[in-house]
Design a protein around this nucleic acid. Structure first.
Lengths: 358, 358
DNA sequence: AGTTCTTACCAAAGCGCTTTGAATGTTGAG
DNA sequence: CTCAACATTCAAAGCGCTTTGGTAAGAACT
């Protein structure tokens, strides 16, 4: 079997291109890659010919020769097929990809099943399939961080990991401050019973949000009430169910902090099904990752929201990673600001909470 | 610069492994790849040693030598940064990935900007970076299909393209029949003014759904009313706005068909803000891709829905593609069934539509 | 005893590229 | 006119793997 399964020669290769020009491979390669030791006349001849025949160097060969794969790995974890697949991911990738493409990188996507984690990362390193990677959805104590440091592959974390003490590169939003601010805002409006419908709190971002919420309450001398704190997957159903339970309390909250716009839709549904109006009977603030397919209204936001674009986070993470690959060294750490958008879903605390109207 | 930017030798390579065993590269390679011309004793020695040192063949080298990259390309298109990034994608990929990993394939993800399409595909082919690819979100007349056929790269379409006459591989849901069935179901319940809040109709799936809707109406002798047909991005806001307009009609619909659960949430919000109850005052059926992060209720679905798991579609597409790469030949075409789940959002047409209650 | 088959291994070529080190022709200084 | 310096170009080695086309040793058959 002299010719491989496929004739690999469908597209012209360097050797053929060189022959067709009566030049050596060396010269053609140098001309294409912008090395100085090529005369300008030859270079333009080469470039023209390459353009004409649509020559693209074979990535695998190039990667093998240079030792760089020009690939970035994105590993997304999936505990089991019933747990939600992070919807954040699509937007993050879109942002990162803009940056990658400028620098000639491509994305390798890998879905790790539970327990598979370590193997996936070690394999990527050993097989040399990526030059660096992005670590998504860090937990409070994220074992993948020391793992990657040991392996020695450049990486940037989207988020942080509170219980990891070593220094690493990350791009994160100041979730703590953001939720503290939102809680303060509600307090200033006279709310004192403020509920939190959080994401899963083993995730670092959710843990930080809760800390922000609690420290704001404590700053006002309010004792956090466990009955007002929920934690779960950020689904519409979870927002609905938590709110339903909250509204059945003897002392229901007058304000709710929601971790995601999807959850917030559930909150609204529960509130409205009780005949409550958002912004007057009950106030709602949500975190909003500014997902492209789930916009919080148009120009006038439906929800008062802490907005931080995941897409921009993706781009910044990509920048840091590429920089880290090119110039290894100290960690690149980026904190992103959240915008605080005042929408129609918040207002002063009602003097006499109007509940169980229905 | 004799040693490349990075010492590539962090992980052991075949040569070193062979030396350490006192064997030739050939034998070790054969032992690892399960060729018969190796004695069982040697093979087990080799496997043990490989396991011990954590040997993983370098993908790039292997790809170069075999002519197969063991990569599948997923190109997702993005017209501009304001258009929504397909949320379907995450689930589809999760399904496909399960199949890929069994066969040793990895995913290369590429986001094509507008106008960039052709270049992205041609580049992938010329650079030899993938063995095949999945075509997402086909339009009614999808130019990428003839393009890929011309390029000669194996591909499977997720969906179909009505205006393309050539034969190609695909995995699709019978959208037409599905929406026809839903419309018939509503008719049987006595509804005659049935609205459609569809996706963007240059997308093939949306176009097919509309055809199903229309042919059901015509089968009942009902003339389709343009005032009852909406088309747009499948956002919550679109569902809300369309429903708001529908409910202001002189002859408002008594039932609504929605293209996505996200849209359906908007429909519900608009209906409920008018004081209408789903299932009694107005019926709603939605298509549901069974996205993991957006479940339609738990055991008892909120919406009556046409459910078809995108994740399963992903897996089937992956199967077809791998099969197509291994044994090129006639097209692999798969039609998936939708489940029709009866939820609480549908009921008999109200005899005297109860509208403008508020 | 010689011949053929098998079995178990190996050296070397090749995948398409980059990069080293050397060779050629051209120019300028001595 | 010679020699060094420079500008261009090239042949060949090497990246880590697979695969071809062997060889050597023993078993099996004449």
């Amino acid at each position: 079997m002299k010719s491989k399964r496929f004739d690999t020669c469908c597209a012209m290769n360097l050797k053929q291109l060189a022959e067709s020009l009566g030049l050596s491979q060396t010269t053609v390669s140098r001309a294409l890659n912008g090395y100085p030791e090529v005369s300008e006349t030859t270079r333009s001849r080469v470039l023209a010919a390459a353009e004409r025949v649509g020559y693209r160097p074979n990535t695998r060969a190039k990667a093998l020769a240079t030792g760089r794969s020009m690939m970035i790995g994105h590993v997304i974890h999936q505990s089991d097929r019933h747990e939600m697949l992070n919807p954040i991911f699509a937007d993050f990738i879109a942002g990162a990809s803009e940056e990658y493409s400028v620098h000639g990188y491509d994305i390798i996507l890998s879905i790790a099943q539970d327990g598979d984690d370590e193997r996936v990362y070690r394999d990527m390193a050993a097989k040399g399939s990526v030059d660096g990677l992005i670590l998504h959805s860090p937990k409070r104590d994220e074992p993948r961080i020391p793992l990657l440091q040991e392996i020695g592959l450049p990486f940037v974390v989207h988020g942080r990991s509170s219980d990891v003490t070593s220094t690493y590169s990350f791009v994160d939003v100041d979730n703590r401050r953001s939720f503290q601010r939102a809680t303060d805002f509600l307090s200033d409006l006279g709310h004192s019973r403020i509920a939190l419908i959080n994401g899963l709190e083993h995730m670092d971002f959710a843990h930080r949000r809760r800390r922000g919420y609690i420290s704001a309450l404590e700053g006002r001398g309010i004792r956090p009430d466990p009955a007002l704190m929920f934690s779960g997957e950020m689904t519409e159903a979870h927002g609905f169910e938590a709110t339903r339970q909250l509204l059945e309390l003897v002392h229901p909250p007058t304000a709710i902090l929601s971790a995601s716009p999807i959850t917030a839709f559930g909150v609204r549904r529960a509130a409205e099904s009780r005949g409550l109006t958002l912004g007057s009977d009950i106030s709602v603030i949500t975190h909003d990752d500014d997902l492209s397919y789930f916009r919080n209204g148009g120009d006038a936001p439906i929800f008062t929201a802490l907005r931080s674009s995941v897409r921009i986070a993706g781009r910044r993470a990509a920048e840091s990673l590429i920089d880290l690959i090119d110039r290894p060294g100290e960690a690149r750490q980026t904190m992103l600001e959240t915008d605080f958008l005042i929408g129609a879903s918040t207002g002063p605390a009602p003097s006499a909470p109007r509940l169980r109207k229905a």
